[in-house]
Design a protein around this nucleic acid. Structure first.
Lengths: 134, 134
DNA sequence: ATATTTAGTACAATAATAGTCCTATTTTAA
DNA sequence: TTAAAATAGGACTATTATTGTACTAAATAT
């Protein structure tokens, strides 16, 4: 699976947060989604660290979008939630064992890199606005 | 990560197997790749079960391609190795908690389904022949 | 016959994901 | 100015998926 629950929860929270113009707190959000409060808190904190969300402590605190929905791409959201880029594949063999043998390039890498590029392009093109509007 | 080592090893093995016209045994293949013999055996057995490979027991036994390289798609190989379709995402929330709320559809699903379709299309289009020839 | 090789299953180890818990800090508002 | 409400952060635990091992059975070439 390319995306984990961290991304799922991040995206669903962002949809909910973007609908309001006052901060949504983790307790409210996690209750609405029916998921763990602490886990969601960690995820939203990651999004805040990456400047997708602005966080407010204290009473009436919570999370607000830090930027316009059209400036937040799916890729940014997902990479922030997963705390690493979403990779199709990572070669695990040492060069010496690559069956490409004499030829000094891997036969697999070019095709999988092409797929990676397609995915990245897609995730870069879709913004939170695209998801929420309609 | 979309692909696990099972797919990586499956693909690399298929590249090697397709280069020979006599059966390649697991011991030889695993040694060449520098990976676990039993693990690779299980993977190749999966491929045989899905009729990607033909297996031969006994002395001089091993694995051979069961069909022409141009008839084996990346998707078939990967799904056989992973023993399940490669999914971008699987919704884990009950409908009642989906923040799409009143509207009875998920805002996330359409966009992620579109990505899934793009990936599937790509994996269906590439064959083992495309990978091996160069 | 026997050595070689795949088939199959049950098990074990490791790693990634998902989730919990506690304490500290900040902020609002009574 | 203090109490309550919230995020911040880190350490820890639990669960699940991946990766790998071990063993036994079945088939086959020589």
């Amino acid at each position: 699976m390319l995306l984990t629950k961290a991304s799922e929860y991040a995206l669903l929270s962002l949809i909910m947060i973007s609908e309001k113009d006052f901060p949504q707190d983790v307790d409210t959000l996690s209750t609405k989604l029916g998921i763990s409060k602490s886990f969601l808190a960690k995820i939203l904190q990651s999004l805040a660290k990456e400047n997708i969300l602005k966080s407010f402590k204290g009473t009436k605190g919570g999370f607000l979008l830090a930027v316009d929905p059209e400036d937040i791409t799916l890729r940014t959201i997902i990479e922030s939630a997963e705390k690493k880029p979403t990779k199709v594949f990572e070669c695990s063999l040492p060069d010496s064992k690559c069956p490409s043998g004499k030829e000094d390039f891997c036969k697999l890498l070019p095709v999988l890199t092409k797929l990676q590029m397609k995915i990245d392009l897609f995730l870069d093109k879709i913004t939170l606005k695209d998801i929420t509007e309609n």
